[in-house]
Design a protein around this nucleic acid. Structure first.
Length: 103
DNA sequence: GGCGTGACGTCAG
DNA sequence: ACTGACGCCACGC
């Protein structure tokens, strides 16, 4: 039962479609707490089977520091068709996951 | 029940 | 647009 925030957050992240990205705040909001972005981080840090590379911050940039997953995340997104600049910036207007838009 | 950890978010300068 | 400072929440010990 997903009666804890972590479980719901986990489920939300697992629902992110390929070729799309979601922000921490968005995930937290969908899980029930718009301000629980930090909780999303905790889940990602403690989960191994999640599309963590599809999770980025509200600026639309990769949060991971270079050398610690940055390149991997960028490569995975590029492989899914998401345009990522060398700086790690993603165009949210084009790739942000629109879960309610039916898209 | 308090403290530290964690890939954040928002505002002000 | 970028950086720094403060606030936010959940989990393990």
């Amino acid at each position: 039962m997903a009666d804890t925030l972590s479980d719901r957050i986990h489920d939300v992240i697992a629902s992110i479609p390929t070729g799309r990205v979601a922000t921490y705040g968005q995930i937290a909001a969908m899980a029930g707490n718009p301000r629980a972005a930090r909780a999303v981080v905790w889940v990602l840090r403690h989960s191994e089977r999640l599309p963590w590379h599809r999770v980025i911050n509200s600026r639309g940039t990769i949060s991971l520091p270079p050398g610690d997953g940055f390149e991997l995340q960028r490569a995975l997104l590029l492989d899914e068709g998401v345009s990522v600049t060398p700086d790690g910036r993603v165009d949210l207007t084009r790739f942000l996951w629109n879960a309610t838009g039916g898209n």
